[in-house]
């Protein structure tokens, strides 16, 4: 009987260790596959001799694989944190319209400051905050379970935001010519070291800070009043948490557009693997989200090579049906 808590603890440590080992493996796999043929074992030689392949590896594949990891880890982690803060496993940044909020922020920024790229992730984060504020205001009150209400509102907000993005692009035009479909079905085709440098600091900062919220989010699971009685300053926690989520989602979406369902399914998988303790789920979500996104991106750029699929299309095709299945199986709790 007394052994049990140690077992759970050990199991979680085991899962985290396995995920920590999986990530470099996925990065390696991602770095060795692509439309430009380079055998995995040839990589060191190609790099040393500085052939054309070296340019492909250094300037195209490496930044892309790393960006996939950063974006995927951020989306999964912000998804898990959002679920914890809103106390429902049914939400994720994409489904709530946060991703489109980020896109709207980014599009507006590009319309007015086309030549200031560093503002893009921040404008996107502001867009997320705007949508979050609207959602929480609209979702307040009694009635259907919070998760279902939020989901419904998010689904209603999404077409409005898409239309807004479309309108801005129609009226002002995007000087960089990004299409609406880039924002709705995102991808990593634009990856470069510059984009990585623009994205990673904000994304990693938000991730590190979010990892520290695990214990407080555990308390929030009992309800906001209960969390308060357990010593959590709930108002401050929610403000800080949502701010960090906005920062992460903003950075990820500004870099890669919307890559749906990563933030929903990864936390769900982790709970199935090692229980719902947020300290475990948050850390695991980053690792697993990064790994899975690197693999999904590998598929996106090799499945129909030399053409490339938008990654968001792939994740939606894989993740959407799985989500529906879970929803039906687990029931509409939330």
């Amino acid at each position: 009987m007394r052994q049990k808590p140690f077992d759970t603890e050990r199991r979680r440590q085991g899962v985290l260790l396995a995920l920590a080992l999986l990530l470099p493996l996925c990065l390696l796999l991602g770095a060795s596959g692509g439309a430009y043929p380079i055998a995995p074992l040839e990589i060191p030689r190609v790099l040393k001799e500085g052939l054309e392949g070296a340019a492909v590896l250094l300037n195209i594949r490496f930044p892309r694989v790393l960006l996939a990891a950063v974006v995927g880890g951020t989306l999964a982690l912000t998804g898990a944190a959002l679920q914890g803060l809103l106390r429902t496993p049914l939400v994720e940044p994409g489904l709530l319209g946060l991703g489109l909020g980020a896109a709207a922020g980014a599009v507006l920024w590009l319309a007015w400051f086309p030549l200031v790229p560093w503002g893009l992730p921040l404008a996107a984060a502001l867009g997320v905050l705007g949508v979050l504020g609207l959602l929480l205001r609209l979702a307040a009150g009694e009635g259907a379970p919070a998760g279902v209400r939020l989901l419904l509102l998010g689904l209603l907000l999404s077409p409005i935001l898409s239309a807004l993005i479309g309108l801005v692009q129609f009226r002002v035009g995007d000087p960089q010519g990004r299409s609406l479909s880039f924002w709705t079905l995102g991808g990593l085709s634009g990856a470069s070291w510059e984009l990585l440098a623009l994205t990673a600091p904000l994304a990693l900062l938000s991730a590190l800070a979010l990892l520290g919220l695990g214990r407080a989010l555990n308390a929030l699971t009992l309800g906001e009043e209960e969390a308060y009685h357990l010593g959590v300053a709930v108002g401050a926690l929610k403000r800080w948490g949502l701010f960090l989520i906005a920062l992460g989602v903003g950075a990820a979406v500004a870099a890669a557009g919307n890559i749906a369902f990563v933030g929903l399914l990864v936390p769900w998988l982790l709970r199935a693997l090692g229980g719902a303790d947020h300290r475990f789920v948050l850390a695991g979500a980053w690792l697993l989200g990064a790994s899975l996104t690197v693999l999904a991106d590998l598929l996106a750029r090799t499945l129909f090579a030399p053409a490339e699929l938008p990654l968001g299309l792939l994740t939606t095709l894989l993740g959407g049906p799985l989500f529906l299945f879970l929803l039906v199986r687990e029931g509409w709790r939330g």
Binding site: K4, P5, T8, G84, R87, T88, P89, N218, A219, L220, T221, L222, G223, E226, L230, R271, G275, A276, D277, G334
Partner: peptide
């Protein structure tokens, strides 16, 4: 009382 995520009883007490 409510619980948003599937914790075990021990995890609830541990809170």
């Amino acid at each position: 009382r409510s619980l948003a995520f599937p914790y075990t009883a021990r995890e609830v007490v541990a809170l």
